[in-house]
Nucleic acid binder design. Sequence first.
DNA 1: ACCTGAACACCGTTCAAGT
DNA 2: ACCTGAACACCGTTCAAGT
Lengths: 190, 190
Amino acid sequence: MTQGRPMRADARRNYERLLKAAAGAFAEHGENASLDDIAKRAGVGSGTLYRHFPTRQALLEAAYVDRIEAFGVRADELAGERPPGEALAEWLYELAVGSLQVRGMRALLGSAVTEHGGAAALTACGTVVHGAVTRLVKAAQAEGTLRGDVEPIDVLRLTHGVTTAAELAGAGEREIRRYLRLLTEGLRAG
Amino acid sequence: MTQGRPMRADARRNYERLLKAAAGAFAEHGENASLDDIAKRAGVGSGTLYRHFPTRQALLEAAYVDRIEAFGVRADELAGERPPGEALAEWLYELAVGSLQVRGMRALLGSAVTEHGGAAALTACGTVVHGAVTRLVKAAQAEGTLRGDVEPIDVLRLTHGVTTAAELAGAGEREIRRYLRLLTEGLRAG
DNA sequence: ACCTGAACACCGTTCAAGT
DNA sequence: ACCTGAACACCGTTCAAGT
């Protein structure tokens, strides 16, 4: 599907250098790392970067595609090990921790659940994450531990929101856990 | 407190022109509106903008200080009209709707609840909002409708997070209401 | 005391020329 | 088919000169 004809040898080499440079730059400077700097680090002209990755979004996605796919696998693992409600909670927790630790991934996940003017053109990353959360959510709803009136995408968005909140708090993993529990249990007394 | 000696006439005029231009630019282009453009709109040199507002944050805050203070007043109004739990919920709703509608205010509120390396130097805007939410939260906790293990700042952060989520959804006011209810009631079945 | 605007540094993006 | 890097446009920030 993403297959096209194979790249010329130099193109493929540049592609991989760019990915490596991008990962480093995003880790150091966050999602807004300079594209020019990334090209320089990779030792290629800036035009080459644009040829391979027409938008910052595309580069971000390519840089984290492995990690995102690991989350898809992890969802099925958890579904096999634990009761649905717990599996969902743990997966959301790991997703939140991941997007806090790996700078740039939060932005990627955010745009993966953004409504882009109606007909949501799901990104590759969006497809994987959305598929995973849908399986977990349906199971938890069937089990009766998750309310029936929420869509999988709502859960993803709210988790992203909670992660944002935790980041504002300069939070560690304990704080994320706390905020996520407030979401799943609610703020009401009880 | 913010009083200093009175500004020279031309300084005061420029200050106000800048505020007006900033409000317009933020409304049009969001929180990242070009500062240079704002100075041009106001008909002043860019240095003048920096003299009055050393950071973008400072300009954002000055542009919205009236609106923020209105939220402080509104909190007391609601506290006088409704039971504490309802007053808090309604206030958070209005805050969320406000930060979605007025571009730039969301960013301002976000940074108002951000932990800035330990000794949180609260902004003026942060002080107002934090004071208001504290009054509402304490009352709701005393009444027993809000769980006792959350701090006012947590409520503010989570509301900011929910607003973020709603924005991702390209949401209207109905969606915000729904997401806020999910926060206050929780995701668990029941 | 305050203002102006040129100057500098930096970044994203395009595209003509090269291999 | 792909790459390079100069060129352009734009922005934030500083500061010497001016009133």
